[in-house]
Amino acid sequence: MSERVKFFPGREIRSRSIDEVLASEYAADLKYSWASGAAMSRFLIELKNGRIIARKCNKCKRILLPPRIFCEDCFRETDGWFYVKDTGTVNTYSISYVAADASRLKEPLFVAVINIEGATEGMGFLHLLGEVSEKELKVGMRVGAVWKPEAERIGSILDIRYFKPI
């Protein structure tokens, strides 16, 4: 270190001594109602119908999924709707042992980015994998959507329960 600086400042509180210092606690529960927007509203309605819909851009010729009203590359309005399949390939996957608050899950979750067939190569979304064992998991495996029964669908990404190997 420079001659001018002799030490690095700071006072650590070890976890067992947190109760020995004065601390104040607060909690907030922020509630939101998010508008789904033009593209996502249609996407959710189609999920309710048991179909996956994308948008296409006539300039770069891409089939965009998740659908959006603009092409981020050409930076112009997209041109129309396009149904894609409810099958795809696993782009990458992992096995989650923890929940969002860092607590341990009872049963691990298999999660994957799935490239959806019919969309431009590499276009896909995040979802869960089911009816598959840890050993069978592979990058590149073909999977298909397992839908909730029509009566239970509400227009949510969870209208697809998970994807399973096909």
Binding site: I18, A28, K31, Y32, W34, A35, S41, G155
Partner: peptide
């Protein structure tokens, strides 16, 4: 469509 959810957060501040 809309999606409703909440963000519950808690903090402990040192003085």
């Amino acid at each position: 469509r809309r999606w409703n959810d909440h963000i519950p957060l808690q903090w402990k501040y040192t003085a």
